[in-house]
Write a protein that binds this DNA or RNA. Sequence first.
DNA 1: TGAAATGTTGGGGCG
DNA 2: ACGCCCCAACATTTC
Length: 483
Amino acid sequence: MSANPVIVWFRNDLRLHDHPALTAAVKSGTPLVLVYILDDDAAGHWKLGGASRWWLANSLDALAKDIEHRGGRLLLRRGETSNQLQRLAEETHASAIYFTRGYEPSAVALESRLHSAFAKTQVALKRYGGRLIREPEELRTAAGKPFQVYSPFWRAFTSDLLVAKELSAPRRLVPPAEAVASEKLTDWNLLPSKPDWSSGLADTWVPGEEGARSRLKTFAAGALATYAQSRDRPDQCGTSRLSPHLAFGEISPAACWRAAVHAQHEKELGEKSVETFMRELVWREFSYSLLFHLPEMPEKALRTEFSAFPWRNSAADLKAWRRGETGYPIVDAGMRELWSTGYMHNRVRMIVASFLTKHLLLHWTEGEACFWDTLVDADLANNSASWQWVAGCGADAAPYFRIFNPILQGQKFDPEGKYVSKWVPELARLPASELHSPWAASVSALQRADVKLGKTYPEPIVDHQIARERALKIYQNLPRSTS
DNA sequence: TGAAATGTTGGGGCG
DNA sequence: ACGCCCCAACATTTC
């Protein structure tokens, strides 16, 4: 008779490689009960968005197959997580639950509930890292407080950094002798049906660990070499596009770090590009640290003076922004890329976010909510920290006077207009020199390009100069910071 | 990981 | 030859 099994509870760590909790569970030498629990109410206000549900369905499918290849089985359960884990532990007579820790307020609260729930039982809770390279408790200022500014965080992060070797994926995952009930993935209705808007996502992404690892490999062998320059160019394939894989834990951030270090040695890359990429990974860690220490970040401006900010309220403007009908080509291209692929190039994210908060003066949480629902890489820490950063109300935020000029940004980062042409095809025939400001194009140029402003493409919903001055005035008049 | 306004400089056209 | 103006090009400051 074999020992009691242990449970491995999968969360946003949908991988088999470099998975400390899974590795430790395998080491226990007992059969493994592998489970994912869909708990729709767990995250409160931050239920999974539509794009995330699509990704999750595909990622779970991939994980289940990877597990089956190793002789195991992924169980699917639905309901309140603590109840489900207790029931599963009773059903299987499990002696322990292995899991990867989370950092969102709801995840932290859940873990503490689990501790009380299992305190008086024979079931041991085994909690591991794996979602971050360094734990938020590790990094403190000299005063013992969490960092609020990125540069010192980066310095501390890299100063005595030791990235452990990759943990290999278990060869075999031995299931318990007796079958355990599982729900069917298709019963969860994670995929959109009416309408099915997911074809663009399916054309763009390969969810799952294999897709993640091959993406990292491709990136490290290619775009990483020129990352410092090309990451800012939405008209090129210069970014890693690893964000959704990281969000679902299909690859560990440590694996990304190691791949960058390895490529640098192997290919003798310039330090600049590799460091720039590492800095992006560390921005992610910084956001997690902020969320962990400042759990109100997704809902509340970190700078207190913003509680008095006179945000506008315009359903029409918000709708135009969401649908990519602002009349500013680079903004509209970004929003349409988002709806179509579940992703938006980072440079363009900054532009559309600046446009929402500064040109339109709409509340940053509106943008945050829209991104949450539509991004396949929706991640509470990254999303909320970044929106606060752009709006100027966050930790180490962009200064209030930094207002992106959507015309100049377009000309600078999409000089030939390839990005705009792809996502706003009704403008594609305009010459590049006019593409980023069609309202300023000559009548004949518009005619030749078959563009009828106000008909085939909208007029700008605000004037850049006027909006810029309006925003400066408001931001300038905010009371001085008190936090 | 801005943009715009303002200031400075230096070359060239021109009277 | 000289001073003057114009205006890129670049630098600085201000928002």
